[in-house]
Structure formats: C-alpha cells, structure tokens
Amino acid sequence: MNSPLLPGRVVSAHGRHYLVEMADGSERHCYPRGKKAGAAAVGDQVLIQPQGRDEGSIEAVCERRNLLYRSDEQRTKQFAANVDQLLIVVAVRPTFSDDLLGRALAGAWSADIAPLVVLNKIDVAEALQAARERLAVVRTLDVPVFEVSALDAASARQTLLPHLAGKTSLLLGQSGMGKSTLLNVLVPGAQAPTREHSQALDMGRHTTTSTRLYHLPEGGDLIDSPGFQAFGLQHLSAKEIERGFPEFAPHIPACRFYNCMHLHEPGCGVLAALAQGRISPARHALYARIVRENEQGQHRY
C-alpha cells in the first residue's frame, strides 16, 4: 500500500528533476509522474509520494497564485511560481539594457506581481548619474528603485531586507549586474558563484545555471534565477501585454474601439496621451515591439 501523499514546496529545478522541501525541513529529490503532476516550477506547492529515504514522485501541483515564464530563441519556459514581488537587478556598470528591464517589468505586471528595481554598484561614482537618469522613467511608474553596492554588505542588507521580509521575491537580472554577489550578501551561505563582467564586451557572463529558492535569515524567501541576455514574452496574450504597461490603463477608456491595440487606430486614448507627453515614447515603442513580435512569432530582439 502506498503511503499518503505529503505536501512540499519545490525549491530547485533541474529539467524534470526537482528538489522538494518537506514540512519538517528535509528535502527529497523528486520527479513528476502522470499528467496531473505536469511541469513544476520553483515556488510550487506540490503533493509527493515518498520513495525510499530521500526521493519521491510529484503526484500533483497545487493551484498557483501566479506563474512566471520567459522565452529565448528556442522555447518558452516556466521558471517560478507563487511569487509576491520581482526584484530586478541592474547596475551602474556594465551598461544595463533598457529593453530587457522594460520586458521584465511588463512580465511582472502582466502576472500581477509587484516589481522592485535594485541599482547595484553605486560605488562606480563616475557612471552613477547616467544610470540614475536612465531609470527616471521607471521611477515615474511608481516602481521603487533601491540604490546599493553589494560590496558594502551591511548597507545593502539594511536597505533591502525590510522589503523582503515575509515575502517570496524572485531575483532577476541581466548577466553581469552583480546578482550573485547580492544573493551572497542577502543569504549568507548561499555560496552563489560570481564572475567579473567582461569589460571588453561590456556585458556579463552567466554564473547561475538553475533556479533555486533560499530562505532569508530574517524571514521571507528569495528565488535566484539564471542571468539573462534576452527576456521573451511570447506567452502573453494581447490583453496581458496591455496589462504589462499600467500607465496605459487611465487612457484606455477613451479609446473609440473596444479591441483597440493602441498602435495606429483612430480615436485611441493611449495614442492621444502619447502625443500629449503623458506616456513615455520609449515605453510605447517597447509595447509596440512586443505586440508585433508576438503577432509574427518572432523570438529575436
């Protein structure tokens, strides 16, 4: 007779192999079994059938509050579930991508997840003001922007930990932004590998290769994910893309057509606000790119 199913939480994912944390704090190496289990993601609550001392099969994935995906040139992949907030790490140097930051924000808002931005490496004084100016549009969207240097561990913890306590936060960042260094500051003992960015190419190299959930000593959880150089949104519907640009919302009721795409339609409230300077041209241009990419099935940026 099989033993009863036990609840657990996925804390690490490697393909279709998962590490599941049980209620007593122990961990089991698990794999999904049957259609009900489906594909799990880090942060999922699951029911497992224990097997042996430290293994098990995932029999079901419990209902999720949300699920985050991202796409690359080959596929769309789910990678985190039941997230309260998205912690997007950018840096003074190397140069961060406004396009990737905008896509990450859109992905968060489309899933009703609150985004926060961390500007890292503020000790690079000569480039700090330029980075701040590039984040001005983000600040106008009421997104909190926290300035830290991961090299000043005590100050970084003091700045960030109060906003992470009691929540599940997904740590996301373009490669080279110092995300792994910041993780090591926030979660002593995480021992995430770090690597200097390539100054010649002005870009980072991937150091995190899988998604993993860590418990913060002061309470709350932090999910670390691989650094990215692309953040696709091919899984989003037209309405979900629209939701990823919340500054459009006050102007949509003024649109003449109920199915307005806010691109070239006559009587569009969003385009009117754009013309009046009430919506950022760069943000609207990003919206238009995402819509067209999804319509054409493109996976390149």
Rank of each mutant, 00 (worst) to 15 (best):
E265S: 13
T76D: 09
A111R: 14
Y69L: 07
L119N: 10
G173E: 03
A153G: 15
I241N: 00
V42R: 08
L160A: 11
G38K: 10
D202E: 07
V90Q: 14
E63L: 08
I241A: 00
E133A: 12
V10H: 04
L105M: 13
A125C: 03
A125Y: 05
L274C: 07
V11G: 02
R33P: 11
Q85V: 05
L47Q: 09
G244D: 02
Q298E: 15
R103A: 01
R205C: 10
S149T: 15
G166V: 07
H262Y: 06
D72T: 09
N120W: 03
K36V: 07
L6P: 08
G176I: 08
V138F: 02
T95K: 02
H235C: 05
R134C: 01
A91F: 12
F79C: 11
H251C: 06
L151W: 12
V143N: 00
Q174K: 00
E293N: 04
Y31M: 12
H206W: 01
A273K: 05
P253S: 03
T181Q: 05
Q158S: 14
L128N: 13
I113H: 11
V143I: 11
H206C: 04
G25I: 06
S71W: 02
A150Q: 14
V270H: 05
A288L: 02
H284L: 10
N2H: 09
P115Y: 00
L286A: 00
